[in-house]
Amino acid sequence: MCDASNVTGIVDRLEARGLVRREPDPSDRRVKNVVATDEGRETIRRVRAEMQATHTALDALGEEERTALYGLLELLRDGLRPGA
């Protein structure tokens, strides 16, 4: 759901951090494939593990606790918005 220039910027930043590399497509020289590096794959693995741990921790909360937490997070998010 991004336009091409936005995707290019995202890939540029990921490439600068060593998380992906661009490779020419063997069947169409106009196309570049974006491939995760070893560091990129490790980052994906780590983020997924952290997300799973977070979901597991949130599942331990009761309904009232989750409601309170989400309300507090909304307040924090509102305070982090520019101009807030």
Rank of each mutant, 00 (worst) to 15 (best):
22 R>V: 13
25 D>M: 02
24 P>Y: 05
35 V>L: 14
50 E>A: 10
77 R>E: 07
62 G>D: 15
26 P>T: 09
34 V>K: 08
22 R>K: 14
83 G>H: 07
61 L>H: 03
65 E>V: 02
61 L>W: 00
59 D>W: 02
25 D>V: 04
10 I>Q: 04
5 S>H: 14
58 L>D: 06
10 I>V: 15
77 R>C: 00
30 R>W: 05
47 V>E: 06
59 D>A: 11
40 G>Q: 03
36 A>I: 00
45 R>I: 00
73 L>P: 04
7 V>I: 15
58 L>W: 04
12 D>H: 09
75 L>I: 04
11 V>C: 11
47 V>F: 04
44 I>W: 12
33 N>Q: 13
44 I>V: 15
64 E>L: 08
36 A>W: 01
50 E>W: 05
76 L>M: 09
23 E>W: 09
8 T>E: 14
58 L>G: 05
1 M>G: 14
57 A>S: 12
69 L>S: 06
56 T>L: 11
36 A>Q: 04
46 R>Y: 02
54 T>I: 09
45 R>F: 06
57 A>W: 10
41 R>I: 04
50 E>V: 00
40 G>R: 01
71 G>E: 13
68 A>D: 11
31 V>P: 02
7 V>K: 15
40 G>H: 04
20 V>Y: 00
75 L>A: 10
54 T>F: 13
83 G>C: 03
40 G>F: 07
54 T>W: 11
11 V>L: 14
60 A>D: 13
41 R>F: 07
23 E>P: 01
51 M>W: 09
16 A>P: 10
62 G>C: 01
49 A>V: 01
71 G>M: 01
61 L>T: 07
34 V>L: 04
23 E>A: 11
3 D>E: 15
20 V>S: 03
84 A>I: 01
12 D>K: 08
58 L>S: 09
34 V>A: 01
30 R>N: 10
27 S>H: 10
18 G>F: 06
44 I>S: 08
62 G>N: 12
